[in-house]
Amino acid sequence: MLETRGLCKNFGALEVAREVNFRLELGARHALIGPNGAGKTTFVNLLTGVLAPSRGSILLEGEDVTALAQAKRVKRGIARTFQINQLFRGLTVQENVCIAVSERLGVGGAMLRSAGQRADVLAEAARLIEMLKLGNDTGRRIIELPYGRQRLVEIAIALGLSPRVLLLDEPAAGIPSAETHILLDAIATLPKDIAVLIIAHDMDRVFRFAERITVLVSGAVFAEGTPQEIAANREVRAVYLGSALDA
């Protein structure tokens, strides 16, 4: 589905991605873990086109998308959430989700009809808002919402793009533990043909969610395998997991 071959990214002498060979299979539930500064978010930025790689290639369903702009990759089905919320803070929850849905349906540039008359956009936005239990916040501006609720809007926007590949960068960060089930339920109900890559620090959540895990250290793939294989890998434990699993 999504593949990288020898992906490298340098900022001057600093190598933040080193020969990353990675495969995200159709319908995968894949986790990307690693210590702080391992290059996880940089990797997502490379996949989505926010950053251009120094070397290597990115393939989506066998087609080279390395040179494609971010917007065009979104149209091909790659959507993401951000580690730190990137929302339209002065707009309502409904407007936030509608903007994403409008772009997906190709009506984002329509000038003659009011956004409030787009029944298809409004219905899809309402479905996603309900799915993420944001119904009571539909008309509230983002700045009026607690951070945890804002995280859910971030997910709703990504889902509004109907992605085939969904990249979730620390999706549960900032969501109160009592509400994380909303997020997990939403992910669990995603169609099986959507490939999901999740970056998370909560090992318990990673091991429950992921069918496959890639460990990134210093910008390079350190290990990859099933959760059981990663948990049993002594080097991974030494580098990263030790304290988390022992606890």
Binding site: V50, Q70, V74, R80, Q86, I99, A100, E103, L161
Partner: peptide, 15 residues
């Protein structure tokens, strides 16, 4: 309005 509010997000929704 989306562009005014958050350029990064507008790129990320494919606009």
């Amino acid at each position: 309005t989306g562009i005014r509010e958050n350029l990064l997000r507008m790129h990320a929704v494919g606009a």
